[in-house]
Design a protein around this nucleic acid. Sequence first.
DNA 1: GTAGTCAGTGAACAGTCGTACGCTGAAACC
DNA 2: GGTTTCAGCGTACGACTGTTCACTGACTAC
Lengths: 218, 218
Amino acid sequence: MSHSPDPPGTRQAQKLRTRQALMSASLELLEQQSLSSLGLREVTRAVGISPAGFYRHFCGIPDLGVALVEETLGSLRALTAAILAETGDTERRIARTVELIARHVAEQPAYFRFLVRERTGGVAPVRRAIATQLDLFSEELTEVLAAETELRGWQPEDLRMLAGMYVDQMVMTAAALLEAGPDATEETARITRATRRRLRLINVGSAHWLDEGQPSSA
Amino acid sequence: MSHSPDPPGTRQAQKLRTRQALMSASLELLEQQSLSSLGLREVTRAVGISPAGFYRHFCGIPDLGVALVEETLGSLRALTAAILAETGDTERRIARTVELIARHVAEQPAYFRFLVRERTGGVAPVRRAIATQLDLFSEELTEVLAAETELRGWQPEDLRMLAGMYVDQMVMTAAALLEAGPDATEETARITRATRRRLRLINVGSAHWLDEGQPSSA
DNA sequence: GTAGTCAGTGAACAGTCGTACGCTGAAACC
DNA sequence: GGTTTCAGCGTACGACTGTTCACTGACTAC
């Protein structure tokens, strides 16, 4: 029997699979607690490997946390890319943006919950990793905004400020939606409505920023 | 010796003092971790009482957390009262508001760190308690805004939205200042500058809200 | 085919954890 | 005065924690 001697790369593939299992199991456990209280044994038990096996993949829970940040990045990238691809008039873009946030949060609640919770959590390296990523998105958004015709003539620092407000608004909306839970349709509607209103206010503010927003005119 | 038989109420006073010690010790320990990983023994050890003694004051760590929320309220009340008492033109009020936030956070970092961290932390009752309090502040602020002459003619829901933005902006600023640390004067200046800019944008937005902010005009 | 690599094991380590029990001694009460 | 109350103690319990070590056995490379 010329059975192929197991597909090549079986070794490394299996290792990756276990690593992935550790991460997604952690993500599940983290829905009800925070990273600083997550136990190493708790994770390995959920995956079905021995505690010692954990160290073949991570040198500790904080390390796993940082890895989770990087994985979570995927969800965030997909969301922001979808938002930035949005076209149409302002009101339509606001509606679609909020819609997109709500859908992504509903589809991948664990990722967003992790980000929102550990952004201010008790594990410094994870906090830093999340902050770095959000800053990165903010910078990307700044560049996109710089190309916007409505924002012609804006100072770079003002553009950064505006981008930061959008990013923070996204995070806060995600946090509120998660807190409401998946079945609270009425509360969810309330949150998305409030977010649309906020984005509208920010847009009105930017429309008149150059008229009276700069302190130099004082 | 007609020594007074100890001031009356010694018993209750001592109990209160121990309770207070438990709470402030917890607050200190929480600067480096989150509530869901805070150990009961860890707290009693810091205070110098036996683990069993803890139960004379709280029925568990989550209970202590909720009590901490109520205590923390004092700091928040002082801050918001100071902000609301501010007068003068818009730009001056913005500057003073941000100044006040920075000072309060610098003077009572532990309280604000606790609020910011546990607002999205892993302990549901504490999360709810903080959300309730922040909602309360938001409502109070809504009523104050309703009396503002510049906001005459605003819909109640729009006022609530604006108040919510201010509150969230406060929380986010506090979070950023805490993350920077007390000695990062340059970073602190950067943060306060950015916050002033944001508040300015919100103000410009509200100044033109009635002109074009309402979706009914579409 | 044979030697080497290495993901995962299983046992043991010294701690820590939350909780329960009955006790003590001082404050509070009548 | 005597009696009651009760904050805090000491001890003990079983369960759980992170980390280490030498090990096995399936995969890989030559």
